[in-house]
């Protein structure tokens, strides 16, 4: 039942997926509904909350602001594939830090928050607390009050809060 379908190939977490999508399909829906990667959450309809943040060629992108067809040719990393991008066989250091520093409660914002933080540190390895606050302004959390999130990100940046 796909109208005006187009064929695209998306590379997600190192795997190639051939999909048939409508040109208007947002990346987040392609990831969740067509590929089944439901770790990327949907929290709003207005690009406000950041729950759907993924990495596109290593940079954080709200996957509700990008069409699936625009993501062709890029390497997409979702929360499910993040661990594999780091050394070692466990969690990515950012996942580990959110885990240890109680950087989550309900967990709904967590995948997007972690990926936004990974991208932030990658871009600004030397950032301090105010840099974390500025850099994560696009990701909303309603549970934690953000304090433990800041601590987790600073720990990964090598600056214990």
């Amino acid at each position: 039942m796909v109208a005006n379908a187009v064929q695209i190939r998306l590379s997600v977490n190192g795997e190639s997926h051939d999909l048939e999508v409508e040109p208007r399909t947002l990346l987040v829906y392609a990831l969740r509904d067509d590929i089944g990667l439901t770790g990327t959450n949907i929290g709003c309809d207005s690009s406000s909350c950041g729950a759907c943040t993924v990495l596109v060629d290593g940079r954080s992108v709200k996957s509700c602001t990008m069409l699936a067809v625009q993501a062709e040719g890029a390497e997409i990393t979702t929360i499910e594939g993040l661990a594999a991008t780091s050394d070692g066989d466990g969690l990515h250091p950012m996942q580990q830090a959110f885990h240890e520093y109680h950087g989550l409660q309900c967990g709904y914002c967590t995948p997007g928050m972690i990926l936004a933080s990974v991208s932030l540190i990658d871009e600004y390895p030397d950032l301090d607390e105010s840099g974390v606050r500025e850099g994560l302004e696009g990701n909303l959390c309603r549970c934690t009050g953000y304090n433990n999130i800041v601590k987790a990100v600073l720990q990964v940046a090598g600056k214990e809060a």
Binding site: G39, I42, E80, Q95, F98, G107, Y108, P111, I114
Partner: peptide, 13 residues
């Protein structure tokens, strides 16, 4: 927390 940091927590959607 382990499930929540890897995207494995199952919300209804």
């Amino acid at each position: 927390a382990a499930d929540k940091v890897i995207g494995a927590a199952r919300y209804p959607a």
